[in-house]
């Protein structure tokens, strides 16, 4: 497997001359322009920038939610541009864990069921799934609240459920889009502690977008974006 051999030496994320533009009413609206970027496996990187600087778009490209207009996005050894929509979904399920600003938990499911969601796509039996879910919830310290619905949890707790959901499949890459944006100080600190812990203890690669300098401080590396360009 020459590809596998390549992975160990290459950075986990590599963007080469990536541009992204939207077309509205025949006008080209550039969002990202000529971005070159490499992220080493096991790093915790934060992107900062004013709104409209293209940081969310960058995150979407790295996580395989969106495709670039030009350039190549390689993540975990795969050229994402060459994957079909279905392959991309399968790739995301195996390689990426997501943490969103508004947690994006499914309101009709309990905490445990929300965490279990990504496992439904993996070839695991019921008992194995239950074990993984219990381990992930334990890691975020929510074991006593497994049967609560999102509406019965505080914002910080909801975000911890979301973190559990992001790590339950043991992905190589964790994507966090403004993870503390909707939380109070205490909740935010808890979430950041947890991300740092994941990074240090488990050597997970974490890519975070934030405009909170306190959050960015926790990363090993901070990059700034402005008007679609990486500074």
């Amino acid at each position: 497997m020459s590809e596998a051999a390549q992975v160990s030496v290459a950075p986990i994320v590599r963007l080469r001359d990536v541009s992204k533009a939207y077309f509205r009413a025949g006008m080209r609206l550039p969002v990202l322009e000529h971005v070159d970027l490499e992220i080493a496996e096991g790093s915790f990187i934060a992107f900062m920038g004013p709104s409209g600087s293209g940081k969310s778009t960058l995150l979407n490209l790295i996580s395989g939610l969106d495709r670039p207009t030009e350039g190549v996005v390689e993540v975990a050894g795969r050229d994402l541009g060459r994957l079909s929509d279905g392959e991309l979904a399968e790739w995301r399920a195996a390689n990426v864990g997501f943490i969103f600003q508004l947690y994006n938990l499914i309101p009709v499911l309990t905490a445990a069921e929300n965490v279990e969601l990504p496992l439904l796509l993996a070839p695991l039996n019921r008992a194995e799934r239950r074990r993984h879910v219990a381990a992930a919830l334990d890691l975020v310290g929510l074991s006593p609240r497994v049967h609560h619905r999102p509406t019965q949890l505080s914002g910080g707790e909801q975000q911890r459920v979301a973190i559990a959901r992001a790590i339950v499949t043991d992905p190589r890459l964790i994507i966090a889009d403004e993870p503390t944006g909707d939380l109070d100080r205490k909740g935010a600190e808890q979430v950041l502690d947890m991300l740092q812990e994941l990074h240090r203890a488990l050597r997970r690669t974490i890519v975070m977008v934030t405009h909170d300098p306190h959050a960015a401080e926790r990363a090993d590396l901070v990059r700034h974006l402005e008007k679609g360009r990486l500074l």
Partner: peptide
């Protein structure tokens, strides 16, 4: 919610 499921890797 549907977009979240898709992000998590659920297919169309």
């Amino acid at each position: 919610d549907l977009a979240t499921l898709r992000a998590l890797g659920f297919r169309r």
